[in-house]
Simulated assay, not measured.
Amino acid sequence: MKEFWVYTSLRIVLFLASLAIIGGVWALVGGDVLWLWVIVASFLMSGMGSYFLLNHQREALARRVQTRAEAMTSKIEEMRAKEDVDDDV
């Protein structure tokens, strides 16, 4: 679960930084800030940034999820095989 929280926290920080940068630049340049467009642009900017900047954390999360899924699958197969043995008796 550590990988999930690290990745999620970094995504939130990246979004808030994008929001501050875009909102600040918009306020300096235009004066009247349209927050809906600032939020949309921040989502786009943080999404593109996370694709490149958070690649390592995303891969670590994916490996963790895959490992847990494989462990769960092997447990299910083990239980299924055990039920088949019990049914034959």
Rank of each mutant, 00 (worst) to 15 (best):
K2P: 00
K2F: 01
E3H: 11
F4C: 01
W5I: 06
V6F: 01
V6K: 09
Y7H: 04
Y7C: 02
L10I: 05
L10T: 02
L10V: 08
L10K: 14
L10N: 04
R11E: 02
I12N: 02
I12E: 03
V13M: 12
F15N: 04
F15P: 00
L16F: 06
S18C: 07
L19R: 07
A20P: 00
I22G: 01
I22Y: 01
G23D: 11
G23A: 04
G23K: 10
G24N: 10
L28I: 15
L28N: 05
L28D: 05
G30W: 10
G31V: 15
D32Q: 13
D32E: 14
V33W: 07
L34W: 06
L34K: 14
L36R: 14
W37K: 06
V38D: 04
I39F: 02
V40H: 04
A41V: 04
S42H: 04
S42C: 03
M45K: 04
G49I: 12
S50Q: 15
S50P: 02
S50D: 12
Y51T: 15
Y51M: 14
F52P: 00
L53C: 10
Q57A: 11
Q57G: 02
R58L: 03
E59Q: 14
E59M: 12
L61H: 07
L61S: 07
A62S: 13
A62T: 13
A62D: 11
R64Y: 10
Q66Y: 08
T67W: 08
T67K: 15
R68P: 00
A69F: 09
A69P: 01
E70Y: 11
E70D: 15
M72C: 10
T73K: 15
S74W: 00
S74N: 12
K75F: 00
E78T: 13
M79V: 05
A81R: 15
K82C: 03
E83V: 09
V85A: 12
V85L: 14
D88P: 00
V89H: 07
V89W: 10
